[in-house]
């Protein structure tokens, strides 16, 4: 019985000593370090920030992907736009083009042809050139120029005595008209009996038609300015 009491007292003393020593060490380590509440606060904050960081990283990745997609799309769009621009410039007649076609040389009746220069009242006028351009376009000409002036949608061919203005530029005889298209079609459109060539020749003008394998029609070079026309939105 006595031994039992001694054993239990010894056990209790041992445990108390152990607990006190442990607690002493723990408390002194806490005092040295960060207070427990603070460290808990900080660890909670750290966890929150870590979660936030993870979220932000995911967002960054997402955005990077979006940027990549956009840039990819941009490059494609650029290409498409460049192609579109090229085509539009071609359509508008802003670039020089080359291909099979014909060259028409027109000149007023030379003074030496008729004995009396006064008799040659006929000179090639704007209407003749207009008709010529009209015939060429009707025959499928894809690009027409007169003395280096490309005929475009807004080109005028206008009598401004004693010259003819094309694209606001004076041109003087002899007139060299270049037209790209099927040479055969273009030639036959002009040389058809009772056609324009015959008509001009009958008036004494010199008209020569020459087909070419490859001719180059210059582009329109002056700046184009729309002061009144505005494109409709969405087109």
């Amino acid at each position: 019985m006595n031994r039992k009491i001694y054993l239990s007292v010894f056990l209790v003393a041992l445990i108390i000593g152990l607990m006190v020593a442990l607690q002493f060490r723990t408390t002194s380590s806490i005092e040295q370090g960060v207070p427990f509440g603070r460290s808990q606060e900080l660890s909670v904050e750290l966890n929150q920030l870590n979660a936030e960081k993870k979220q932000l990283e995911a967002e960054v990745e997402d955005l990077i992907q979006k940027i990549q997609q956009t840039t990819k799309g941009q490059a494609e769009a650029k290409e498409v736009l460049a192609g579109e621009l090229k085509k539009a410039r071609l359509d508008a007649g802003l670039v020089a083009v080359s291909g099979p076609g014909i060259e028409i040389t027109l000149d007023n009746p030379s003074a030496g042809q008729n004995k009396d220069p006064g008799d040659t009242m006929f000179v090639i006028r704007d209407e003749d050139l207009l008709r010529l351009v009209n015939e060429l376009n009707g025959a499928g000409a894809e690009a027409v120029s007169i003395n280096g002036q490309r005929i475009m949608a807004t080109s005028e061919i206008r009598w401004a005595a004693p010259f003819i203005n094309v694209n606001l530029t004076r041109i003087a005889p002899p007139y060299h008209i270049l037209a790209i298209g099927a040479p055969k079609n273009l030639t036959s459109a002009l040389e058809i009996s009772g056609g324009l060539a015959e008509y001009l020749q009958s008036l004494g003008a010199q008209a020569r038609i020459q087909p070419y394998e490859n001719i180059t029609v210059p582009g329109y070079t002056a700046p184009i300015e729309f002061r009144y026309a505005k494109s409709i939105k969405g087109e």
Binding site: G17, V20, F24
Partner: peptide, 19 residues
Amino acid sequence: IILGGLAIGVLVGLNVPFL
């Protein structure tokens, strides 16, 4: 017995590698 138990307990507590 009491002091010995206390002393051993304190010694063990001070030398245990963990907190």
